[in-house]
Computed example of a mutant assay.
Amino acid sequence: MNRKQHPVIVAAFILGVFSVVGTGLVSMVFRHTEPLIEANERATLLRSIEALVPPDSFDNDPLTDTIELADPLLGVRQPVPIYRARKAGKPVTAVLSPIAPDGYNGAIRLLVAVRYDGSLAGVRVLSHKETPGLGDPIDEHKSDWILQFAGLSLQDPPEPRWGVKKDGGDFDQFTGATITPRAVVQAVRKTLQFFRDNRDIVFAPPQQEETP
């Protein structure tokens, strides 16, 4: 072996050992922290649901009483979870997670809670990339604009008025920004239409696990 090659081989070996050990440590840390991350995500989602659906209005676990559906009205091609709140086995509210695909800077992820009678319990924005100061008033922490949906339905206002005022609808747009509120209003309207057409499917009884 060439003496000049020996240090290079040793260095490469040492780097390889460190790489294997480092990968193992990262994997071990991930395995130990993954349950904690999942628990935190679950707790955050449950808080979001309970902000829209009062906890005393249901007695089941919406995070386990779920159904996955896909429909163009929800802005998705892949199935998304729908969380069902029930009390004494009777349907109360479905919490859907549609996408408004046509935000100014991309998709806007929503949480839309629809009562069994088709009225809205409320709407929240889960994530967005809208321009700060222009499109971000859809965030409840920046504005109360998103709170106006509670109690509305496809009858109040009538479907033709489900739009921003610039388009002849009932909903305010933002100063200098119309695309963002338009996208949210249309996504909520389409979610209500989906619920109206699929309520029985949305609230189908949860599947019972087969007894071995």
Rank of each mutant, 00 (worst) to 15 (best):
V123S: 10
P35C: 02
G151V: 02
L36D: 01
A107P: 08
Q155G: 12
L15W: 01
L134Q: 10
V114C: 08
P181E: 07
K4R: 11
V92S: 11
L126I: 13
P101Q: 00
S27T: 10
V184I: 12
A11D: 03
K166Q: 12
D200N: 14
T175P: 04
E34T: 08
E34F: 00
G163C: 00
T178H: 12
R115M: 08
D65Q: 10
H141N: 14
D167F: 01
K4Q: 12
V76P: 06
Y83I: 05
G22P: 03
I37Y: 12
R189F: 03
G122I: 05
V10K: 14
T66V: 15
V188Y: 11
K165M: 11
P91L: 07
V17Y: 00
P81L: 06
K90S: 13
T23F: 07
E38F: 01
G16Y: 05
F13Q: 05
T23A: 09
P79Q: 04
I49Q: 12
V164W: 11
Q173K: 13
I82D: 06
L120C: 12
L147A: 12
M28C: 00
P91M: 04
H6K: 14
P137H: 07
A204W: 02
R47M: 04
P205I: 00
N40L: 08
R84F: 05
D197C: 02
E209Y: 01
R182N: 07
R86D: 04
